[in-house]
């Protein structure tokens, strides 16, 4: 009933806009291959199955990849890496000592360097050393009495020069003096 009323209203609307089209017999000029609609649902379901199977395969591959990643993460954890390095070091040194047994007593390479060579090295490479470390080393090496004598020998000008060269102005600003 509703469809019939709608058809009628469409026909009236068409007559009003285009009598030419309203007069035309409305027929479907298109055809489909034989049994097309009988097979359509099974064709679509087949496509869906293939699509879902490939998705499952992809998800299996993804899971395998994730599993490999987790293994790699376990293997390359810092503690395992450290243990590996230690084992490798021990293996190499063991092999080395096995094939080159030590007969002569161990001599430290440092002990064969003269004081002069050491001083020259420090002078040439002074930029490599930290100032505080050098002061600590100096205080440890020098005799306290000798140190006191050296300090007594320092003039006020020496101290002033040292302060100006080594202490930042902001330090005095903070002291507010």
């Amino acid at each position: 009933m509703k469809t019939e009323r709608n058809k009628q209203s469409l026909q009236e609307e068409l007559k009003e806009i285009s009598p030419l089209l309203a007069e035309q017999e409305k027929k479907n000029p298109f055809k489909v291959p034989e049994n097309y609609f009988s097979n359509l649902s099974s064709q679509i379901l087949e496509k869906i199955r293939i699509d879902e199977e490939s998705k499952t395969q992809n998800s299996l591959l993804n899971r395998l990849e994730e599993w490999m990643d987790q293994i790699a993460l376990q293997i390359f954890k810092p503690k395992f890496v450290l243990a590996g390095v230690v084992v490798l070091f021990l293996s190499i040194t063991s092999v080395h000592y096995f094939f080159h047994p030590v007969d002569a007593p161990y001599v430290s390479p440092i002990s064969v360097i003269t004081d002069k060579q050491a001083e020259d090295y420090v002078a040439d490479n002074i930029y490599l050393f930290d100032e505080e470390d050098m002061i600590v080393a100096y205080l440890a090496a020098i005799d306290p009495e000798e140190l006191e004598m050296q300090l007594n020998r320092a003039t006020e000008d020496d101290l002033e020069e040292y302060i100006l060269e080594n202490i930042d102005q902001s330090f005095f600003d903070e002291l507010d003096i």
Binding site: N28, F30, V32, Y36, L40, S41, K47, D51
Partner: peptide, 27 residues
């Protein structure tokens, strides 16, 4: 299927094209 197919077919005109589009619609 018929209503969907014919709607598509009248838009794209060719049967093979309409078949592809209709299958995509139902997927």
């Amino acid at each position: 299927q018929q209503r969907v197919y014919w709607h598509i077919r009248r838009m794209v005109l060719d049967h093979d094209d309409a078949n592809d589009v209709a299958q995509n619609v139902f997927i």
